[in-house]
Design a protein around this nucleic acid. Structure first.
Lengths: 215, 215
DNA sequence: GACTGTGAAGCCATTCACAGCT
DNA sequence: AGCTGTGAATGGCTTCACAGTC
């Protein structure tokens, strides 16, 4: 059994390939080439083949890949053969939107607990969920076997919530607060920072990826 | 005047430094070293210095950086000296959350028009905005001088909306639909794909960044 | 002594080009 | 002939290490 390091960029693209394959499958496409996948998701054909090669040989030379098979392989690699219950901290506008976000469910993700410390939000119903006090998060995590946390609270409260999640053994956190969270190194954080994305855009609106010093 | 290519990762980090500096400034900190910035945002000190070096010499050897000055420099580089009006397509839960998203305003971004084709959503008020039909987007873009578009519509409608934005000369699009949009190459797209972020987490929950082939 | 700015080195990811298979 | 799988080459980003400055 050989173990090898996979670039994070490869994992990211694998997720994108996976959903693209799902779409092909829904459309009744049964076979696909690396070139067609590349075309569909905006990378090079060699990149697609190289990425897949980290995990095995899934194609047939001269033919391409079987869509259904490759879709299943990618989902298995991404660990999507089981559903993923998640705990959400923060029941503001963003938190509420996340609760109703369809794309989560389609891929097996489901927020099964929403928590907030704001008394005006506790008890609020969001679809089939009820906002609970933050201190009830530990027991829900345990009961539901939750392993992923989402932080959608104001910046000033984010670290405190992260600490609470860490204490309750969550090892994967999706963070929407625009701050670098301090966590043990066995805890993974993915930051979603919308202002950063916009600022990359505004930078490029001016410079197009190059910078001209003013002298 | 020399022109040089700046790595996108550098621009991303610059945005993060910029907000960190803003926080330091609010807290009354006047001077900071590359090591302190590095510590605060989770990168290496050399990385911070190298990133800044793309744009000039902002520090004092033996001393560090002046917080206020460096903050202003970063904001100027990121093109944040002007406010950025934005057009939002999609007034569902996500779109509504984006309209009220505080972190946008803090950095000079403001959604000034919300558009949707769903008759049940048109006319809905979101804070001081009213949802308008998509076909009114062109004139609002023109009137308000909008240069950035946000796509928060269902996947099936995303390409159509992107086409509309492109036709109306938007060159920067923030896309929340989990699909690769087809646009001319002078149009920049930043994708925010929450499922992808989660799937990177689930992958790592199993493999910790390495992959063990099953043989 | 402390910290910045930067060439050089090291490392990692992407692209190339072709052998191998159907 | 067509397309995959992959070592080799390339390109780009990060880290190192130290000269330069206060």
């Amino acid at each position: 059994m050989k173990t090898l390091r996979v670039p994070e960029a490869t994992v990211t693209r694998l997720s994108i390939y996976s959903r693209f394959l799902e779409r092909l499958d829904r459309n009744g496409v049964t076979s696909v080439s690396s070139g067609e996948i590349a075309e569909g998701v905006g990378v090079s054909p060699a990149q697609v083949r190289k990425d897949l090669a980290y995990f095995g040989e899934f194609g047939t030379r001269g033919v391409g890949y079987n869509v259904k098979d490759l879709m299943h392989y990618t989902m298995k690699i991404l660990n999507l053969t089981q559903p993923w219950p998640m705990a959400l901290a923060g029941a503001g506008n963003l938190g509420t939107a996340l609760c109703t976000y369809r794309n989560f469910r389609e891929r097996g993700f489901a927020i099964v607990g929403v928590f907030d410390n704001d008394l005006t939000k506790i008890g609020k119903r969001i679809e089939d969920l009820t906002v609970q006090p933050l201190e009830e998060m530990p027991q829900v995590i345990k009961q539901r076997g939750i392993r992923i946390g989402i932080i959608a609270v104001p910046t000033r409260a984010a670290q405190e919530v992260a600490d609470l999640m860490v204490r309750n053994h969550l090892k994967a956190i999706l963070n929407f607060a625009p701050i670098a969270l301090n966590v043990p190194e066995d805890v993974m954080i993915r930051n979603v920072d919308l202002s950063v994305s916009l600022e990359v855009l505004t930078f490029n609106l001016k410079y197009r990826g190059t910078y001209e010093s003013e002298e």
